[in-house]
């Protein structure tokens, strides 16, 4: 019964994974036949300035978007956790942007952040603030993506909300009896109890941010290399340059970096993640 899934795992994952390693040792433009060149691709990576550049762009985006995304989602979840009328409606509205197709999201944000006619700049002007060039400004393109990313954190917010609702009220009652105010309750109960979910969201968030592609692909061209995400560079090398070997080596590098980042995150978790079951 698991046959289709096992076949799928082998054909669409294990074999390609193995093949990717092999291909990364070759010089292969799709039309020619592959030529084994050993570690040459990896050597070339280290002297390729665009690898450093694109990694820098990707790290910068991850560094800004992951923490802001988690904090934004957490605040959203705590707000949605309040007992209010129309709670379900608010949940749905906060969630909506996160499931919209990325291309449509990018198109509407291009229009919102249009330097001359965009709604955001018109608003800034109205309240007397300086207007910005957003996606057209090489220094602002990544922060603009971070802003756009914040619009879509409703998905993580729902995960936090479910976790928050899973915290036993008795913990809050106990804290309140001990005289803890809302802020202390947040620090002593909410945050530790949510920390395993925060860890999960952090890991998923880092992996996703390292793979950012569509934003750079659709908007990046206007701002030179300042939106050259790593995966965009890999895509260009593979599908525009036809260098399958080199692209595979790049993919291996990304895989390696993602593994290290995930490992570091998990390692750090013993310092800040609280597991209820371990305490008992």
């Amino acid at each position: 019964m698991a046959t289709p899934a096992i076949l799928g795992l082998v054909v669409f994952f294990v074999l390609p994974l193995g093949a990717a390693v092999v291909i990364s040792f070759t010089d292969w433009g799709l039309l020619s036949s592959p030529e084994f060149i050993g570690l040459d691709n990896y050597r070339a990576i280290f002297s390729d300035p665009l690898v450093g550049k694109s990694l820098g762009v990707t790290f910068y985006f991850a560094l800004l978007s992951v923490p802001t995304g988690i904090i934004g989602a957490l605040l959203m979840a705590l707000l949605l956790n309040q007992k209010t009328r129309f709670n379900r409606l608010f949940v749905v509205l906060f969630y909506l942007p996160s499931i919209l197709p990325v291309v449509a999201v990018i198109v509407v944000w291009l229009w919102l952040l249009d330097p001359s006619y965009g709604l955001v700049n018109q608003g800034l002007e109205k309240v007397g603030l300086p207007t910005l060039d957003w996606f057209s400004d090489p220094n602002l393109v990544i922060p603009s993506f971070v802003l756009m990313n914040l619009w879509g954190v409703g998905g993580s917010a729902l995960i936090f909300l479910a976790a928050r609702r899973g915290i036993s009220p008795t913990l809050y009652e106990a804290a309140s009896l001990d005289g803890a105010g809302p802020w202390q309750q947040f620090k002593a109960v909410t945050l530790p109890m949510l920390s395993p979910v925060i860890l999960f969201t952090l890991v998923i968030g880092i992996i996703a941010a390292m793979q950012t592609f569509a934003q750079g692909f659709l908007i990046g061209s206007g701002s030179g290399q300042s939106a050259l995400f790593f995966n965009l560079y890999l895509y260009q090398r593979a599908f525009q340059g036809g260098q399958m070997g080199y692209a595979s080596a790049l993919a291996m590098l990304l895989f390696f970096i993602t593994l290290i980042l995930t490992a570091i995150t998990f390692r750090s978790s013993s310092l800040w993640v609280f597991y209820e079951s371990r305490q008992k």
């Binding site: 994952f13 390609p16 093949a19 291909i23 990304l254 895989f255």
Partner: peptide
């Protein structure tokens, strides 16, 4: 947990 880019090239070639 594995970035899609890793299997992308072999799958495309296949």
């Amino acid at each position: 947990m594995v970035p899609f880019a890793v299997t992308l090239v072999p799958l495309f070639i296949g």
